[in-house]
Computed example of a mutant assay.
Amino acid sequence: MVERERDEGEAIALTGGGGGQLQQEGSVPGKAEGERDGKERDAEDEREEEKDRGDDEAAWSEIRLAIEELSPAQRRGGGGGAGDGKPAAASPPTLPFLALSHLLLRVLDKIGPTMAVLRLDVQRNIERLQELYLLDPAKYSTLTEIVEKEVKEGTARKVDSCARAVLWLARSMDFTIALLQRLEEDSDLAQLVEAAYEIALKLMPERRIFTSFLLGMGQDCSALKDDIERLVLLLRPLLDDIHSMMAKFRLDRLKST
């Protein structure tokens, strides 16, 4: 019970405060509905504001936030290596995957309006997966549990399934990795995106401008390159686990429609 409440709290924080109903349902009987709850909410709001101010001051890039998100997942075994240096098979954790998906949205925002269609698709997939997760964070703590549920129900291949959402979010992260790894190449951003995603795009910012968007405060291009390499090393095992899981359930070749 304690573990589930903790997971729900993390998920609520992830969604930006959309879990007010869960918080009310979990309130302690006997409290005064007015003053005490109001004070607690005020105190919680102040703590969140202080955290936000600290985040703004740190001005971390999305890449460094992703690295920070992946590191605990690695320690929990969500992609840890075996003795031979190869990643051990793992059940991909849901909550870090959702957090990474939200960071993906922020990267797409930096590319510009050309990514509007892809961004909308990513947003819908996040919401679909998030909705199921919040129903029972303990039960759906891993993506394998979510996909396995739908496979048993015979709904995994449906257009609005969570299994399809997991697959396309993973593919979107594959695209992001390919794009970031090509930033050092001597070509403009439109060509990089086309090479990574195999589509022709317009209205792209210049590569140097996009690179500056990715930099955190006080961070230079050399540090960004190191961060990208570290992110790829951390994210690739998680994506490999997800693709292996989808292949196990014969869902790895699903198309968009």
Rank of each mutant, 00 (worst) to 15 (best):
L118H: 12
L118S: 13
R119N: 11
R119H: 07
D121C: 10
V122I: 13
Q123V: 15
N125G: 04
N125E: 02
I126G: 04
I126A: 08
I126V: 08
I126T: 05
E127W: 07
E127S: 14
R128F: 01
R128I: 01
L129F: 05
L129C: 02
L129Q: 09
E131H: 14
L132A: 12
L132F: 10
Y133R: 06
L134W: 02
L135S: 13
D136C: 07
P137G: 01
P137V: 09
K139P: 00
K139Q: 09
K139M: 12
Y140G: 06
Y140K: 07
T142H: 10
L143E: 06
T144H: 15
T144D: 15
E145Q: 15
E145D: 14
I146R: 09
V147C: 11
V147E: 08
E148F: 03
V151P: 04
V151N: 03
K152D: 04
G154S: 08
A156D: 00
K158D: 15
K158H: 12
K158M: 12
V159A: 13
D160C: 08
D160R: 12
D160E: 03
S161L: 06
S161C: 00
C162T: 07
V166Y: 06
V166T: 02
L167S: 01
L167E: 05
W168L: 04
W168Y: 13
L169G: 04
A170H: 04
A170P: 00
R171L: 06
R171Q: 10
S172C: 13
M173A: 08
M173Q: 13
I177P: 04
